[in-house]
Design a protein around this nucleic acid. Structure first.
Length: 420
DNA sequence: TCTGGGGTCCTAGGACCC
DNA sequence: TCTGGGGTCCTAGGACCC
């Protein structure tokens, strides 16, 4: 048996924890640069604001309905997520943190009343964090996801739903749109529509061979999971990432090589920081810059440079140097670059990595000492406490007109009046 | 005017081997 | 005219997730 705990409208709920007067009022949270709505409270959803709607297109709705608008405050959301996880860990020895707002719990072999258990987990999350959490319990992860969605649909379930009897599952699936099933995306749905498949039950009723032929292994797994046969295991071990990407859109277009270089150097530094945190080294990187695809009359480019790092390294300067070289290579005047980034790939664990016979080990060791020093300065004084010259004076200011305080992650921002 | 940022897995097909 | 039968490894691109 699996549980899925899913925080309702997570980012919007985080903002409400510290602004309880916003309960009942529509709330949205925006992506970087105050671009798109990436979280909506139920009231905001009811107004027709969709996931990913750009702010400028919904301005009318926002103003007419007194929608509370927040810039993304990801330090806050990360910290609240950690708090919810702490509560969840009390309910199973084995949990998989699936995303910032979702976690699976392995309930195998537990001798409890699962319906009560689901409701209790939800209640306790609320009591300790003030985040509303929907907990679905079912024999497979895919069904647990569906059960948790039922909690959102039916408040009378009180945040917890246990679903296991075949006749109950059948009833639920017959009323559950196929497109909302975990693992069925837009492309698949298009094929399914043509076949007359509308509900999760329709999909589960397709012949096995059809599913295998048309939707291959991933679609087949989903099909079996809907039938109650577990195929997707709980992954409670945190594996190191296989790729790391740091990219941003700019609040204004970047036209000069100097400015683009400084940005890209910063992204490279950010990527290396993530790389070092998981004790990996990388053998490849790609640096890229793209123009504004929405500006149809402007010249467009998707410029990138791919670099091989034969020695494999996690050295700040190596990545920044390659990133800058890449920039110099592909930069062309006359383009307005709107977004850029650095992707590092071919990641391997630092421990046990066999360097080439011809690597200059003494030089590599010296380099790594410098990077270690940068790490410890950052640890003691915060990221950005020391910069490489090429990183310039820092980042381009992101548009953040509606940022809430860092209530839980900055001493100066701790709420001073009791809110609950 | 204004449009996010980060991941994973799978498969087909190319290139190579005997 | 007729043109074998296995393999492996790698990569790009597609599809999905949040």
């Amino acid at each position: 048996m699996y549980a899925l705990a899913d925080c309702n409208n997570f980012f919007a709920s985080c903002e409400r924890v510290f602004r309880p007067e916003l309960n009942g009022r529509p709330v949205i949270v925006l992506s970087n640069n105050d671009g798109c709505a990436v979280a909506r409270s139920n009231e905001a959803k009811a107004l027709g604001i969709r996931m990913g709607d750009p702010l400028f297109k919904i301005r009318d709705i926002v103003e007419k309905n007194d929608v509370a608008v927040f810039s993304g405050n990801f330090a806050l959301y990360g910290d609240m997520s950690r708090r919810v996880q702490e509560v969840l860990r009390c309910y199973s020895p084995s949990i998989e943190v699936y995303s910032i707002d979702e976690a699976f719990l392995d309930l195998d072999g537990m001798d409890v009343n699962f319906d009560k258990y689901a409701k209790e987990i939800s209640r306790e999350c609320w009591r300790q964090t003030s985040i509303p959490v929907s907990v679905g319990i079912a024999p497979t992860k895919t069904l647990a996801k569906i059960a948790s969605k039922l909690c959102k649909r039916y408040p009378k379930l009180k945040g917890g739903c246990y679903m296991h009897r075949p006749q109950d599952i059948e009833k639920v699936l017959k009323n559950f749109p196929a497109e909302d099933v975990w693992g069925i995306g837009r492309r698949m749905m298009k094929k399914l529509e043509a076949m007359g498949v509308k509900t999760a039950w329709d999909y589960a009723s397709l012949p096995e061979t059809t599913v295998r032929m048309l939707f291959h292994l991933p679609g087949y797994r989903t099909w079996k999971e809907l039938k109650g046969i577990p195929c997707i295991a709980l992954e409670d071990m945190i594996e190191p990432r296989k790729t790391i990407c740091v990219s941003r859109s700019f609040s204004k277009e970047v036209t000069s090589l100097q400015e683009l270089s400084e940005q890209v150097a910063n992204f490279a530094e950010g990527a290396v920081t993530k790389l070092r945190a998981q004790h990996s080294i990388a053998l490849e990187m790609v640096v890229f810059a793209i123009t504004n695809r929405f500006k149809q009359d402007a010249p467009q480019t998707y410029a990138s440079k791919y670099v091989v790092i034969p020695d494999g390294t996690a050295d700040h300067r190596v990545f920044i140097r390659h990133a800058l070289e890449g920039c110099r290579d592909f930069y062309r005047p006359g383009y307005g670059y709107k977004k850029a980034g650095v992707v590092i790939t071919r990641l391997v664990q630092e421990e046990g990595f066999a360097h080439s016979l011809f690597s200059d080990m003494a030089a590599l060791e010296k380099e790594s000492k410098l990077s270690e020093s940068i790490d410890s300065i950052h640890k003691a004084f915060g990221r950005g406490a020391v910069l490489l010259g090429s990183q310039g004076s820092g980042e381009i200011k992101m548009s953040r007109e509606h940022q809430s305080p860092h209530y839980t992650t900055l001493w100066t921002d701790i709420p001073k009046t009791s809110v609950r």
